[in-house]
């Protein structure tokens, strides 16, 4: 399976929207089956200087994964970035998520010099939790009833990774 990782562009709007609403993807992210290509276009067009978003695409242009890092805009939190990721249902478990996350973390560590990268993940999403732990994220707390999923309010873990080598003064 040959795929490339590159920054998201307007040409990816339809592919990214298809992913965002895909069964097997939308439930465990913040997507909905009603997500439109127009929503995706607006999202891509609205990305600003603090947003760093990538897609994984097959040779034929099919989007098989999306990942983004957003640097916190609050002046007292400029050392913090939030990340999010989703992978096409047919391409999960094959390293695409790992590669996308490594791309984001390389940016965070070596070019943005962030101290802290954080994310939220559903508490029962074991596969995702293992991926994040492998990349150095630690659980910081259980946020209760944060999000609707399949007719219930479900819990999420807050996880974060402090940049290796950073020591608090």
């Amino acid at each position: 399976m040959n795929y490339t990782i590159r920054p998201i562009g307007p040409e990816d709007a339809e592919g990214a929207a298809a992913l965002r609403r895909m069964p097997g993807v939308f439930e465990n992210t913040l997507g909905l089956p009603s997500y439109r290509t127009a929503d995706s276009e607006a999202f891509i067009a609205g990305l600003g200087p603090d947003d760093h978003n990538f897609v994984a695409v097959l040779d034929d242009g099919t989007v098989i994964g999306c990942a983004g890092l957003t640097v916190c805009s609050n002046p007292r939190m400029r050392h913090v970035g939030a990340v999010g990721l989703f992978v096409h249902a047919d391409y999960q478990g094959r390293g695409v998520g790992t590669t996308l996350m490594e791309t984001l973390l390389d940016l965070a560590d070596h070019w943005l010099m962030l101290v802290r990268v954080e994310l939220e993940v559903f508490a029962d999403n074991e596969r995702a939790i293992r991926l994040y732990e492998k990349l150095g994220f630690e659980q910081e707390g259980l946020l209760r009833m944060t999000t609707v999923r399949n007719g219930r309010y479900v819990d999420e873990y807050k996880m974060a990774r402090i940049r290796p080598g950073v020591t608090a003064p």
Binding site: R76, H79, V115, R116, E140, R144, K158, I162
Partner: peptide, 24 residues
């Protein structure tokens, strides 16, 4: 209190922890 976000903000020259609290 649900958790502690490490080094989440700048205060007086240091990165400090913040607690997440919630009421359900």
């Amino acid at each position: 209190t649900e958790g502690c976000k490490r080094e989440a903000a700048v205060k007086a020259g240091a990165y400090v922890d913040t607690l997440v609290m919630a009421r359900l």
